[in-house]
Amino acid sequence: MGYPLQNKRYQQGISLVGLIVVLAVIGAIAVLAMKVTPTVTEYFSIKKAIASVKAAGGSVPEMRAAFNRQAEVGYIDAIDGKDLDIVKNGDDTEISFAYQKTIPLGGPVSLLIDYAGSTGNGVAKKALP
Score class of each variant (00 low, 15 high):
106 G>M: 08
54 K>L: 07
22 V>W: 01
13 G>V: 10
17 V>R: 07
31 V>W: 05
83 D>S: 11
55 A>T: 11
15 S>W: 03
78 A>F: 03
120 G>A: 15
113 I>A: 06
129 P>G: 14
55 A>Q: 08
62 E>N: 12
53 V>A: 09
100 Q>C: 02
26 I>G: 12
117 G>W: 02
27 G>W: 07
59 S>C: 08
69 R>P: 00
21 V>K: 00
93 T>D: 10
82 K>C: 01
45 S>V: 05
51 A>Y: 01
24 A>Q: 04
45 S>P: 00
33 A>T: 06
79 I>T: 07
95 I>D: 07
90 G>M: 13
16 L>P: 01
60 V>Y: 06
128 L>C: 10
39 T>P: 00
46 I>S: 11
87 V>S: 10
113 I>H: 02
45 S>L: 12
65 A>P: 00
67 F>R: 13
24 A>M: 15
123 V>K: 13
46 I>H: 04
65 A>N: 13
59 S>Q: 09
101 K>L: 09
95 I>V: 12
85 D>C: 00
39 T>E: 10
41 T>A: 10
12 Q>Y: 02
101 K>T: 14
90 G>K: 13
42 E>W: 01
84 L>Y: 04
23 L>D: 03
61 P>M: 03
51 A>L: 09
51 A>Q: 13
72 E>D: 14
54 K>E: 09
8 K>G: 06
5 L>Q: 11
59 S>R: 07
8 K>A: 11
122 G>D: 02
18 G>Y: 06
32 L>Y: 12
12 Q>D: 08
36 V>D: 06
66 A>N: 12
119 T>P: 01
44 F>Q: 15
92 D>K: 09
105 L>E: 09
103 I>S: 04
1 M>Q: 04
120 G>K: 14
15 S>Y: 02
7 N>F: 03
